[in-house]
Amino acid sequence: MDKFVKLIQDVEVLWSKYYPMYLNGVKNTLILALVATVIGFLIGLACGVLNTIPYTKQDPWPKRFLLKLLRGLIRVYVEVFRGTPMVLQAVFIFYGLPYFTDGAVAFRGNSGMWLASIIIVSVNTGAYMAESVRGGIISVDPGQTEGAKAIGMTHVQTMLHVILPQALRNILPQIGNNFIINLKDTSVMFIISFTEFFAAHRYIVGVNNMYFPSATVEMIGYLTMTLAASFLLRLAERIMDGTDHYKLVQEDSLTMTAGTYNHPHRGTPFDERSKEVRERIKQELKFGRSRGDR
């Protein structure tokens, strides 16, 4: 028990002395993870969309060739960046560029380090997101595409208005996953002396010997960040799903009054509640609100 008391005391000492440094690390970690996840998602979105452009044997050969080439390139990108550690990618980009250009192109100073970090984490996230987006697109029911085609939508319109909104909702948990992974994995950016949260720890324990208490601060800090991120993502999902209820609109200028449509046997749709709907309401009362049938 007294060990815990000692630990808490040490943590308090560390925090009161170094909290600006820790907080600065948290800030940098959050900014890097957020920016890189957004950019990485955009890269992944572009890859996923380009990867799923359909072609048939009837298409002219330049189109087929181009699409095949595109798929090949994306494949190489995904495999290379997914298959190597981000630490090494950082080294290759940060030190490799000046090495090959004899110092003509290099990431210099603080802004250079930020730029390099954002590029590396984004490109890495993009490789994962490319597959997530592709999976999200092909998991949308093909009937949705057929429905859109049948009313004359082009591939672009179908993607934009029908497929992507549904695919993005489905991959939102994966985007969240990537964001949380980035919050933690940005710690490897110490290799190019980026001062994120973990780098703060490395610096602080370098000037005193309170390694374990500082690690405790780090643990609590990372967990706080990831829990907050999880909570916000759940919230976003719920907002995207919208409400499970809808209002019948009967009394306004757009809806004609009852009687314009009649079922010979069962009155009008206005007093009709189908079996399915009744059943679902029953289930909802029993088990609480469901998030719809996906």
């Binding site: 809808y246 019948l248 609109v249 809806t255 004609m256 206005f270 719809g292």
Partner: peptide
């Protein structure tokens, strides 16, 4: 005869 349901999502009908 579906005008009153115009604000419903497909999964709700």
């Amino acid at each position: 005869g579906m005008a009153p349901y115009r604000n419903a999502k497909p999964r709700q009908i």
